[in-house]
Design a binder for these strands. Structure first.
Lengths: 196, 196
DNA sequence: AAGTATTTACCGAACATTCGGTCAGTTGCA
DNA sequence: TGCAACTGACCGAATGTTCGGTAAATACTT
C-alpha cells in the first residue's frame, strides 16, 4: 500500500481544514473570523490548526488560488479565444456559472476580497486579468455587430457579470437546480431578455 | 441663525464622522476597520470619535438604516403597488438603481453585511422584507404573462437584482454616467436582451 | 511476537499585539 | 470665563501565533 493511498486513520489534514475554514470565512467574513471560531468548527483547539496549516492568511491564499485557477482555466480554453465573439461570450458565461457552482465557497470568498493584505492584493490582481479578458470579449462582440449598439459594452460587461457573480450570494447546491439550468436562465435573460 | 444652519467653525460632527467612516468601512470592510483607522481618516485621535458618536457599531447601524430607508421608500411608493406587474417591476428596478447611486456607500455597506452582530441581523431582517417584495412582484409579472414562461421567476429575481446590486461593486460617480443612463442599459439588457 | 523508536495529531498555557472603549485633563474660540 | 472639541494615557478583552508537552498509532528491530 503506497503512502498516498494509505488510509488516514483519523483527524484532520490541510485539505479538510481548508474546506471547513472557507465555510466559516464565508459565514462571518474573513476578518470577522477568529482562529478560535475555526477551532470550534473543526472540533479542535486553536493550536491544533497550526499543525496542519501555517496560519490564517495561508488559508485565505490557498482558497483564493483555488477560485482563480478555475476562472483562469475558463478564459484559457480554446473556445474562449476562437470563433464569433458573441458565441465565445456565451460559452465563457456558461463556464463561469459552472465554475462558480463547482467552487462556490472559494469563489464566494474571492468576490469579497478588498485588498487588505498582500495576499488579497495579489488575488485582486489576478482577478483584474480575468475582468480585462471578458471586458475585451464584450467589446469584440459589439464590434462584430452582435450586441445592440445602444448598449455601452463596458456597462454590459459589468452588469452581465454582476448577475453571474451574484450567484455566490444566493445559490445553494441543495435546493437550487443544476449549474446548466442556472446558466440557461441567465443566458436567456441577459441575451434575449426576460420580457415575453 | 438656527442651530441646524449654524456654520460649524471647525472640526467634525456626527454626520461627517459617519460619511468618512462609511468610506473606510467600504475600503477595508467593517471588521477589517479599526477605530484607529477611522481616527486616521478623520485626522483626529481615536478618543475624539467617541465625542461625536457612541461607538463603532452605532456607526454601522446608522449607515445601514440610511440604505434600508432608501429601499423601503422604493417599495412603499404607489407606483410599486398598483398597475401591471411588469411595469411596476421596471419602475422598482429603475428606482433601485437610482437609490444605489444616490446612497452608494451606504448600500454598498448593507450588501456586505453577513449577520455577525445583532445590528447586522436586524439589517438583514429588513433587507429580507425588501427581497420578499420584489420576489413577489416578479411572480405577479409571470402570472400576468409578461415574462417568458421558460424562466423561473425566483431565479429571475435573483439574477435581475444581482445585476442591480453589482452596481455597488464597480460604479464610481465621477467617471460613470448618470443613474438614469445606467438604469436604461440595465433595463434594456435584462428586459429585452443584449443580443441584437 | 515483543519491545523500542518515531511520527501523528493534538492540548493547555503563554506570547506580544491590537482591539474597542474610558476618562481626566488641555486647548482655543466666543 | 465657559464650553465645544479634542488629546494622551490607559484598561480589559480578544487577537493570531508559538511552545512544551503528550497519548496513541505506526514503523523498525530483534
Amino acid at each position: 500500500m503506497s503512502i498516498t493511498t494509505r488510509q488516514r486513520r483519523r483527524g484532520h489534514d490541510p485539505e479538510s481544514v481548508l474546506s471547513i475554514a472557507v465555510g466559516v470565512f464565508n459565514e462571518r467574513g474573513y476578518d470577522g473570523t477568529s482562529m478560535e471560531d475555526l477551532a470550534r468548527a473543526l472540533g479542535v483547539t486553536k493550536s491544533a490548526i497550526y499543525y496542519h496549516v501555517p496560519g490564517k492568511e495561508q488559508l485565505l491564499a490557498r482558497a483564493l488560488d483555488r477560485a482563480l485557477d478555475g476562472l483562469s482555466a475558463v478564459v484559457s480554453d480554446e473556445r474562449a479565444t476562437s470563433g464569433p465573439a458573441i458565441e465565445r461570450l456565451e460559452w465563457v458565461v456558461r463556464q463561469c456559472v459552472r465554475t462558480l457552482v463547482d467552487r462556490l465557497p472559494y469563489v464566494t470568498l474571492l468576490l469579497r476580497v478588498r485588498g487588505n493584505s498582500v495576499t488579497e492584493q495579489h488575488a485582486l490582481e489576478r482577478r483584474r486579468e480575468f475582468d480585462a479578458f471578458v471586458s475585451h470579449l464584450v467589446k469584440e462582440a459589439a464590434a462584430e455587430g452582435s450586441i445592440r449598439p445602444d448598449l455601452d459594452p463596458a456597462l454590459v460587461t459589468r452588469l452581465l457579470f454582476g448577475a453571474v457573480n451574484s450567484i455566490t450570494e444566493w445559490y445553494r447546491p441543495a435546493s437550487g437546480g443544476s449549474a446548466d439550468e442556472l446558466a440557461d436562465t441567465l443566458v436567456t435573460m441577459t441575451f434575449d431578455g426576460l420580457r415575453l
